[in-house]
């Protein structure tokens, strides 16, 4: 379509075009969107709308938001999302089973030789089932140190130096102790 006349444009804007005429008008509009906007005197109102309405707005209780997503995405599902098809070499993993059996027999033999100290470490290793850090940017590392289990949390916010926690100062916010667990879960997580 060459330049449509004013009547065609107005009919289009009113939603009155159909079929081929509509397709041609749409194609023309796509090529000449800027001109059409200027013709309509749209720019000023477009800018007003862009300024009046937020393009981005953090949801309330943002940490809780993330944790709820994780809860529904991962924790309520028994198996993680399917990964892509295995590469060819993984399809020969049938050979792993007999190898694994042989390995287990060997390890069992070794295990009968392991002393008390190692047994204590195995018990310590069993201390933790999972460590979950809800805040983004925070990650945990579990270290077995002798007979002790150590969790190292990295990426936490620093407690402000000015906050005198020894004297009893605390940051802002509603104390989670003030709520019963079920109520707290809906407020925080």
């Amino acid at each position: 379509m060459n330049n449509p006349d004013e009547s065609t444009i107005q009919r289009w804007l009113k939603g009155e075009l159909e079929g081929n005429e509509l397709k041609q008008m749409e194609a023309w509009a796509e090529e000449n969107a800027t001109e059409l906007e200027a013709k309509m005197g749209w720019d000023a109102l477009g800018d007003e709308i862009a300024q009046a309405l937020p393009s981005e707005q953090e949801p309330p209780y943002a940490d809780f938001f993330n944790e709820r997503v994780k809860h529904h995405a991962v924790e309520l599902v028994e198996t993680p999302p399917a990964t892509k098809a295995s590469p060819l070499w993984k399809r020969f993993n049938w050979i792993l089973a007999p190898t694994a059996v042989a390995g287990m027999v060997f390890c069992f033999y070794l295990g009968t030789r392991i002393d008390q100290e190692t047994t204590a470490i195995e018990q310590s290793v069993a201390v933790l089932e999972e460590v979950y850090t809800p805040a983004s940017g925070v990650h945990s590392e579990v270290i077995i140190s002798g007979d002790s289990t150590v969790i190292v949390l990295d990426g936490l916010d620093e407690i402000p130096d000015a906050l005198d926690i020894v004297s009893g100062e605390t940051g802002q916010g509603l104390s989670p102790r003030m709520m019963v667990k079920t109520e707290r879960e809906s407020f925080y997580f």
Binding site: L53, P54, S55, E56, Q57, E58, P59, A62, F65, N66, V69, K70, A73, V74, P80, P81, T83, K84, S136, G137, H139
Partner: peptide, 26 residues
């Protein structure tokens, strides 16, 4: 995240939640 790393996906949530939430509220 496609490899199963949920923390990577969590970063995506943090990065994009503002726009998604704003769009839906609007």
């Amino acid at each position: 995240a496609q490899s199963g790393d949920y923390r990577a996906f969590d970063q995506l949530v943090t990065r994009h939640r503002g726009k998604v939430y704003a769009m839906i509220v609007n």
